[in-house]
Design a protein around this nucleic acid. Sequence first.
DNA 1: CTGAAAGCGCTTACAG
DNA 2: CTGAAAGCGCTTACAG
Lengths: 356, 356
Amino acid sequence: MAVSERISAPRRRGVTAMDVATAAGVSQSAVSRSFTPGASVAPVTRARVLEVAQELGYRPNLIARSLITRRSGMIGVAIGNLRNQIYPVMLEKLAEGLSAQGYRILLFTAPLDGDADPELAQIMRYQPDAVVLAATSMSSALALECRAASVPVVLFNRMARGAAGSEISSVTGANHDGGRAIGRLIGAAGHQRPAFIAGHALASTSIDREAGYRAGLQEAGLPPPLVTHGNFHERDTREAAAALLQRQDQPDAVFAASDQMAIVAMDVARHRFGLRVPEDVSIIGFDDAPAASWPSYDLTSYAQPAAAMVAATIELLLERIGEPHVAPRQIVVPGRLVLRGSARLPPGIVRDADNQ
Amino acid sequence: MAVSERISAPRRRGVTAMDVATAAGVSQSAVSRSFTPGASVAPVTRARVLEVAQELGYRPNLIARSLITRRSGMIGVAIGNLRNQIYPVMLEKLAEGLSAQGYRILLFTAPLDGDADPELAQIMRYQPDAVVLAATSMSSALALECRAASVPVVLFNRMARGAAGSEISSVTGANHDGGRAIGRLIGAAGHQRPAFIAGHALASTSIDREAGYRAGLQEAGLPPPLVTHGNFHERDTREAAAALLQRQDQPDAVFAASDQMAIVAMDVARHRFGLRVPEDVSIIGFDDAPAASWPSYDLTSYAQPAAAMVAATIELLLERIGEPHVAPRQIVVPGRLVLRGSARLPPGIVRDADNQ
DNA sequence: CTGAAAGCGCTTACAG
DNA sequence: CTGAAAGCGCTTACAG
């Protein structure tokens, strides 16, 4: 049901520029100019207008303004899976950063399944100045849809694959490097039977982390990992972890493609299989989500630096809003391995300290 | 810096109703009507218009529409402390529920300190149809500001205190009842030295939970709790928990005003003081946040039912958008105590099963 | 059922 | 520096 279909009490009229103009004895244009930085108004006029506006409680209607400026000041942000702790953190930082630049977030949550097409279409009708797609499970089709409408789009924490790969801007953590560092860590610590809990089959984050992991394991002279699929989903991850741990040749090191999944795996290992972490099995995640540093998990993880990723996103956004036809850029933000207590350490290496 | 201050490449013009009208050989009004459910258009005309619109990729500009309908279809949502896991969950549900009603969320994150006034003022300029304030630390001044501008406002997970109390609509969990149930549980399980870790001093959630808790303890014949202040903040909570646990007369039951704080307290108890939970100390939270059911915490908590709270919020919102002058309502959504493993149980009572 | 016209609240050339 | 006017993309009485 669209908003317009509902019956409504007549909406009150707010105070408009015209009201202020009348009260201040100037034209409506003068009022508008008084609120436009850099516009040509006599300081004394502006002062009077602002004073009257203050009295009347006038604030320019940004909806009306955007109609003529063709800038809505809104950034559409699609976010799925807010349960992965990194997204709330990112969203908060993104909101703050965009706010500092004078933009607001028009939020839409992508349904976890299938396309968010109808949602996106709806958002587009609000004329966002740009769109950020931050749901790992989302198809590239959405990004291409934005492109088709000439609305700048930036993928966050995922990359477009295949043909669209180089046409769409994106910001990701160092997924391949991180996976590789984890593979090498596992090798250096003397593990023999690596495993991997993958996210969504199509998520670039999971795919890239796995590829890096395989490379790192190989460099360390280890076999390829056993792989099960947690799909970034709690129940699936419990099953994926159990499937690994109940094997005859139980893995001695499990890398999960996200901290969210690593935590589930750790709980399964400890509470369902009675295993000690890391003595019986090392568990490693990716993201360095807030819960990774909670002492009960104390999770070794590859950090995706939220602040830097958000800053890169805002940079891409502003660049494209200013100049829509600038070439797409894929930014990979470097991270670092955070060594805590959930994975055995190589000889001579010490864990990182959380300064708490 | 406002958006309008920035230099911009000329924005492309999208396809407008006029373009469709020309292509379809009808008037612009006919195009508008074709997109307005219930409007008076010949079916054949509408069909042709929609077909041409489809071809041209036309979608009505909601910004323009809202100027005349005085309905933006946007709900301003203020959210602070997204790190408390219940807020992402609520936000997701709120977004879904509002989306189903044809509304979008215009997000603003309230700075954790002080007033969010400038942010709110900015949001108001986008003419939201209503505003939801979901940051516990926010002052009632914001709500009154919305009221002054005749924009319906609903407080989420907090109530206005004092004079504003009955003038502002709100949705909360059963804070007093929940606190009381926890006090009685602690008594029934045979604890002797109760403690409380409070949230922000001014947060109605914390105040009401504490009052209920005191009542419940008293009913059980226990003394009032020792109180320290975690302020819904991680570091403060670590200190608050430590201050309690290092006492000579160490509490044997700690109720924290949120699961977020309870989890921190549990980690302090276990990892810093080497205590067993619940053998040495029972720990109880409030919210039933996702992490409460994670096996490593297995936290006894009073559940705030997210779905019901969001549904109540949406109900209040729609009611007020339809009829701005309807009387304020304070809805208290009943919850229930979820008994897990972090608190000793009274004789004969069994824990709840998480069906995982 | 349809079109021409007015108007939502602004910004911005254009003259003066 | 200022005001009158046009116009952003729509909706909605008003006639016909």
